[in-house]
Amino acid sequence: MKKFAILVTVLVGAILVWGATDFPQWGDPNSPASTHVSDRYITEAYSASHVPNLVSAILADYRNFDTMFETTVVFTAGTAIFLILRLPLGPLARRRNSKHPQAERHPLPRDPILEMACRILFPPTHLFGLYVLTHGHYSPGGGFQAGVILGASFILLAIGFDLRAILARFPEGLFKPLAALGVLLYVGLGVLCLLLGGNFLDYEALRVLAPGISSAMIRSHGILIVECGVTLTVGSVIFGIYANLVSRGNHEGGL
């Protein structure tokens, strides 16, 4: 198997290098990748949506269909992991669970220094996550980054304290609907644009809701709403994946 793998790998690598011989020079501002479409993104995006962070502008305005499905990917992964790990409690589960090692309920030693450190770190991390979301228009950031930071703040607490204690405050019954709510917010905005007469996710159509607003500002607000939806889903799903993975599905204990 190893010889076959080496052969395949060397073959693939050689073909890739051969294909790269007629690439344009790296860093050339006149290469095709940097001139056809991306020029227009750089020069037109700010006047279209008043969002200086061009990556956020493209992500949530020009290519927001992709981002909607990216959020769906996160939701799908959370649901799939839930399906795989959280075994149902019916007779089928008892048959499957028979080989499952019993969850060891050893009491975790409580470390006051760790707990205090996590307690101090949690609010600033949470706040930083919200800052990254809202300031994503002007600095590096956006929905996904904010969602990951928010999820990480909960994971920090779960590591410092006990998983069960955090699940008591942020239970499955809360983070599962929150994840769905994030995607619904995104898709709902798109459907709203449809109902108001424009194309799907065409923020221009929302101008009837706020008369007097300029086209660029409505796009800026549309981008923010969409990023909020993304943050909700990503934050909840990241914590949900952690809770399911670390406790092997039974939410009893963890790291």
């Binding site: 056809h36 479409v37 227009r40 993104y41 305005d61 020009y62 290519r63 927001n64 269909f65 992709d66 424009g198 194309n199 799907f200 996710l201 065409d202 923020y203 221009e204």
Partner: peptide, 13 residues
């Protein structure tokens, strides 16, 4: 063809 978010290709999807 259908232009999502109102942007014509190649800017939009």
């Amino acid at each position: 063809s259908y232009h999502i978010s109102g942007w014509a290709p190649p800017l939009g999807i």
